[in-house]
Write a protein that binds this DNA or RNA. Structure first.
Lengths: 223, 223
DNA sequence: GTCAAGCCGATTGTCTGACATTCTTGCAAT
DNA sequence: ATTGCAAGAATGTCAGACAATCGGCTTGAC
């Protein structure tokens, strides 16, 4: 059998990417919190019809990336500090668990992947591209979550991180935050590499707590 | 002005309830896992148009209550034991945390509510109505999660419990499971009432572990 | 000048109907 | 029995339409 000629001459089912486009746009902070998303505008911008768009919007609503109030339409929710705190707390719960499990079971192969993503973050941290920083940092966690042995942990975590992505760009651009974040992540990596569950949990907890503190600072500064 | 005759001759915004109807139907086990949901059929059954139905289906897809394969349409996912295990594990993480927090901060008023829901479960446990058992048990957790001080914890938990609701009816009808469940829940309640965080965590953990074991048994029995 | 009432445009909620694409299933031919 | 094909069914997507609702603006009264 010839090796998978999955060429797809005529790109079918491209509509489903709409939701990904929108999601990415939200991540990138293209829309201000609180701003409304007018359906007709999005339709023309995305080149799709209103029914299709509305389907995509429903998905995003279920993911809590947008909110839809009846007769007012979709908008980007303004994340209150209360909710952000709650998200960080649950993130802590999940990441600590994942890091601990990961330390006990990650394969050497995946460990190299993790190291690579840490290097990628290191490079991003030297730059001023906060979007790249957020993205590479997200990769780092993703690898940990993907190797913790519990797909649900990963899934839930992804959903939560998505909701605070808006913040994370802001707080990452705080002075020195990227560098200290790097140090924390390196410690997590070392612990996992050493197979030290307790240390991985501790380092992971520290990291989330620091991230939360940074987020609070950037929010108080009204950035 | 006459006092709010909210008669709603022409029922407005009733469409949004469609998703609730469907969700309830899924909870109740009306559809077999793996069975397909044909859009045109659902449209006539629910009395709505296809676009509206598809919006509802997208919501349910994002909640992982159904899955939609391109060009094959929506269906009820067959829950593998691997995924179910993962869900129970995360549930444990969340419930333990919530019970612990709840013990430290619940108001006397809400504590009475919790007691009431425990009584409701007690009554259901005496009967053979496993749906009522699942529902009242869900109420019990909901109150704990709603009073743990972290709305995200509650939200995530609700999503996870929804996905294993199919099972829970089955495992609850195992011989003696409802009664032992009652005992475990009572212990959780007592710990919370006493404000004993550690005990609440321990009892909560025990409860989830037992529930998981019961689910495994009922699954192995191929029920 | 300020405030309240009412009207108008903009936007959403929902439907009908349509058509191309894709999957499934049954039938025919080898 | 297996293969291939063709008809039917279901989905993916669109266009257009219309009522209901919301928000802002104008108008009028004090």
């Amino acid at each position: 059998m010839p090796p998978d000629l999955n060429l797809r001459i005529s790109p079918r089912t491209v509509q489903r990417e709409t939701v990904d486009k929108l999601r990415l746009a939200i991540f990138s902070g293209l829309f201000q919190p609180g701003s409304r998303l007018v359906e007709s505008q999005l339709c023309t911008q995305l080149g799709i019809s209103r029914p299709s768009l509305r389907e995509a919007l429903r998905s995003l609503e279920a993911e809590r990336l947008i909110e839809i109030v009846p007769n007012r339409g979709p908008s980007i929710p303004a994340l209150s500090w209360e909710v952000a705190t709650a998200i960080y707390e649950v993130r802590e719960l999940l990441e600590v668990e994942a890091a601990g499990r990961c330390a006990l079971r990650i394969s050497p192969e995946q460990l190299r992947e993790l190291e690579k993503s840490l290097s990628a973050f290191e490079e991003a941290a030297s730059s001023n591209d906060s979007l790249a920083q957020v993205m590479t940092a997200a990769d780092f966690y993703s690898i940990i979550l993907a190797n913790c042995g519990n797909p649900i942990l990963e899934e839930v975590h992804r959903g939560l991180v998505a909701r605070i992505s808006f913040f994370r760009g802001r707080s990452m651009s705080l002075d020195g935050r990227a560098q200290s974040s790097l140090a924390e992540m390196r410690e997590i990596f070392e612990s996992i590499a050493a197979g030290d569950e307790k240390a991985a949990r501790k380092a992971s907890k520290q990291h989330v707590l620091k991230a939360k503190a940074a987020a609070k600072i950037s929010m108080d500064n009204g950035i």
